[in-house]
Design a protein around this nucleic acid. Structure first.
Lengths: 216, 216, 216, 216
DNA sequence: AATGAATGAGATTTCATTCAT
DNA sequence: GATGAATGAAATCTCATTCAT
């Protein structure tokens, strides 16, 4: 006896549950490539393997596809990742080493790079989006890094400098990578070596942050 | 020597010659605010104090307005600035100190921040634009900084690290400022202190780059 | 005699046979409220307690739902009613008294008012509908009334006037009520008193139709 | 010296002032024929001799075209007409005689019939329209007629009956004509004789309203 | 040189209709 | 018999571009 409304056995039912995700995946690609305005619903639909009309079964408008996309990727991918590092106990160096390694890996394969690009591009047209991203992502990431750095200062691991600025110094290299990836990845023949760059950036910063008269 | 029939003294004549520039100024504002696609020719025209038709007297299409804008701002503002620093002879520290001071000042007042934003947003729709910006701006800036750093290494001012990566480490903080300005400037109540941030960033990097066993 | 395999006693069987009627009832409501074009199959389906697809099991298209509806309500409700009054033998006064009373009652409760409204609205888009309604309803009603009036004249009950015009004079008040009901019923706080109005209308007409020098 | 902004000499300027009117005329035809929903902007445009886009230079949306149309025709045609009869001093009989003659004439030639049709059809979708028409047209016309009838009663011209109901009795014949014209005019071979019908309707009513024991 | 009315291609969105389950 | 996901044609509306004045 099966009391569920959508019977999971039926193939179109299985499809139905997958559809929103498929559409959002397609939308991510298209928005990333063209930006919000130049992206056509037709493009998104085709890439998702459906027709225009189908998108409207799941999202009431193009804007809503966009918002759902932002929420989806922020909510899951990034925020989750942060959750894991919440009670990190190691050194500042270790922290950024790990983070940069993860970022470098992501930069090679998938689409995160796309997101900052979209936010930057559409912040003018979607102020709420900028605000959302600001409070939900940036402030949290910077906040977390700032906390770790402050602990490092207290512990005498690094010298006494405004921790939030340091956090931004570190993250700025990540931002550069993200944008480089989103904007110039297709243009370049030999790929920029994100991993090496981030490692060097971290090395320089850590030396520069070492307490006076002490090698790191 | 002026061979034009319309005498340059008359105000409407001066006006005529100024038109393209006025239109580009207006276009800069509008593109910055809305991005390329969402910017309406009507908006640009109104802000320039002319009507839509007039724009087409000077530029054959919306795309051409955009390209002229990019060329104009790159060609004059930035490339010019670079010219001046071509045969810079001071230390690496001095070089970036000056550059960061100039950038910090520009960030407070005008619209440069706008440009990276537009490039990032429209790189997908205008690959030539991305290429142009890449070769004409980024490669030149990075190249110049790389040269200065290489000289610093040769001179023993800083330790032996891949100079291009270092250049990018330095510049990444500028990029962060530019984007911050373009995306979040309106949102924030108390402005982010670009000057202080860049100064700290430089300080950390320079310490981190000092040759072993030597304080900078 | 029932040759169907599905036994009529079962509730879902009764259901199946009732479906077309339920759909038409729902359609009546929706068409009345929105007109033909603005009525959505989805709305009709939901109100009938089925899904869109089900409607197409019984009617090949939206137009056909509409036509079936017209035929259904005209064929049964009105034409039937007329049948009963075919061999009416009383006075003209009695005839309209009865008819107006019936109309007044119907106006209070149900949906007849809806029909003229739809016909008027859609006559342009469905010329056949206008023609159908004209020949099957209006001409018959007017014809019958005309016959009764002609008999009244012959009998000396009312004075010698073109009977068809008189029929229309009488019916015009009914038309006004129908339209008033359909268009303004929702707007008004205190309902218009159809019964009183029709009674007065009839009273005036009958006095006005009385043979010279004779009070009705 | 001409200080006007739109210089009346230019031919496209003359055109510009005429356009809204031309578009509304075309819209009247199309809405009348198809109703609101089935009318395509393309149709209206073509009939006005322009393209779709042009309509949007003058009206922000299809609904606005519709509202402008209603306001235009109510505001000018009908309300004006009423103004003229405001201080009518003659008998009730004369009043309706004149009104019916005017209506009969209008019914032969132009498009007024169209309006009630549209109102009836679209009242469900545009409640404001129904309300507007109700307060601005119907209540005023009925009110005026009621006033004249009340005076007739006071003067002893007609017997003591509720004057508003009498007004509606009179007007119902006009309504019937309007609807007949809008719905069945195209269908019929020999035109219905509105003039004769209205004259007879009035004659019957006036006799029926004459004070007891007095021929009208 | 400048205007601004007009165009028409193209985008979003709706919804009657189909069909696999 | 019933469902409801999917389709795709068609409608509204936008706006870059043209051109008569």
């Amino acid at each position: 006896m099966n009391l569920q409304i959508t019977k999971p056995g039926r193939s179109w039912s299985r499809r139905k549950q997958a559809r929103p995700g498929e559409i959002l995946d397609a939308a991510l690609d298209v928005f990333a490539e063209k930006g919000f305005a130049a992206a056509r619903m037709e493009d998104i639909a085709r890439r998702a393997g459906v027709t225009k009309g189908t998108i409207y079964l799941y999202f009431p408008s193009k804007q809503d596809v966009f918002k759902a996309l932002a929420r989806h990727h922020v909510g899951s991918t990034l925020a989750d990742a942060m959750e894991q590092t919440k009670d990190f106990q190691g050194s500042v160096h270790e922290f950024f080493e790990t983070m940069f390694a993860v970022m470098a890996a992501k930069l090679e394969q998938d689409h995160i790079a796309i997101f900052p690009k979209i936010i930057i591009a559409e912040s003018g047209n979607f102020p709420e989006l900028a605000r959302f991203w600001r409070t939900e992502v940036i402030d949290k990431v910077i906040g977390m890094a700032t906390g770790i750095i402050a602990k490092g200062i207290a512990r005498g691991e690094i010298r006494d400098v405004p921790p939030e600025f340091v956090a931004r110094s570190c993250m700025s290299a990540v931002l550069m990578c993200l944008i480089w990836r989103a904007v110039f990845a297709n243009t370049d023949k030999e790929a920029f070596d994100f991993k090496k760059f981030l490692a060097l950036h971290l090395d320089i910063l850590m030396r520069g942050l070492a307490p006076e008269g002490k090698s790191p």
